[in-house]
């Protein structure tokens, strides 16, 4: 099975994963910054596919990170994935973006039985979720995703750029203090879950916050 994975919940990243490839990865790319998704994502995917000699017809499915993440960036990945899926006629699955960091933790020497994944939600808040991890298993989502201030999180080891940002409040793991969700891990997670017959999400974005719009109150009357 070959999957194109895309995530723009923080940085822009994409990966081609296949259970036939070494480490399940054929190709991948990720940007460092969190604000140029609309420019870099399509050229990145295009270059990655041509270098790997893969076309849309070769894919079995697409998977996209559905957040949580800053809205405009998040939408750029979902708009891209939905359009590619439509044109190629391939199924599109969604995965919660924090799962990518959870899998990366599970595959590292830093793995612990219970932990948090935390990313930056801007406006002095974080996106977070709580995972449990049994030996040789995929990380299991126990709670979340949520958006709140860092002080409200459970006291557990915390992984991800949001933990690094609030290292004074959270038990941030130093090796993961700048880590962002990456399509590479998202794609591997999707492969593993699809292989074991589990259903994934659809591509509905997890905004977690309403738009800021305020319904205007009645006009003040002059007396």
């Amino acid at each position: 099975m070959m999957i194109l994975a895309i995530d723009t919940s923080a940085v822009a990243s994409a990966a081609l994963v296949s259970d036939d490839a070494p480490e399940s990865v054929l190709a991948s790319f990720a940007t460092a910054d969190t604000r140029s998704h609309a420019e870099v994502l399509a050229p990145g995917i295009h270059a990655m596919l041509s270098e790997a000699g893969v076309s849309g017809a070769d894919l079995d499915a697409l998977v996209v990170g559905v957040g949580p993440g800053p809205f405009t960036g998040l939408r750029s990945g979902i708009a891209t994935a939905r359009t590619l899926s439509f044109v190629w006629g391939k199924p599109l699955h969604g995965l919660m973006s924090l799962d990518a960091v959870a899998l990366e933790v599970a595959e590292s020497t830093a793995a612990v039985p219970e932990f948090l994944v935390v990313t930056d939600a801007r406006r002095k808040e974080v996106y977070w979720a709580r995972y449990s991890l049994a030996d040789g298993q995929l990380p299991l989502l126990q709670d979340g995703p949520h958006v709140s201030v860092a002080a409200d999180l459970p006291e557990l080891p915390a992984f991800g750029a949001g933990a690094g940002l609030y290292g004074d409040i959270l038990d941030a793991h130093p090796e993961f203090a700048a880590e962002q969700p990456d399509a590479l891990y998202l794609g591997q997670f999707a492969l593993a879950r699809l292989a074991s017959g589990e259903a994934l999400l659809d591509s509905t974005p997890l905004y977690l916050r309403e738009s800021d719009a305020q319904v205007p109150g009645p006009r003040k009357r002059a007396l």
Binding site: H37, A38, L41, A42, I45, H46, L49, G56, F71, T72, R75, S76, G77, A79, T80, A81, R82, T83, L84, V87, W88
Partner: peptide
């Protein structure tokens, strides 16, 4: 509107990549 433009531009680029 920047955020609105972004959706159409990303979709259009994906169309270009896919076709």
């Amino acid at each position: 509107l920047a955020g609105a433009l972004m959706v159409g531009v990303c979709a259009a680029k994906a169309l270009a990549v896919a076709t």
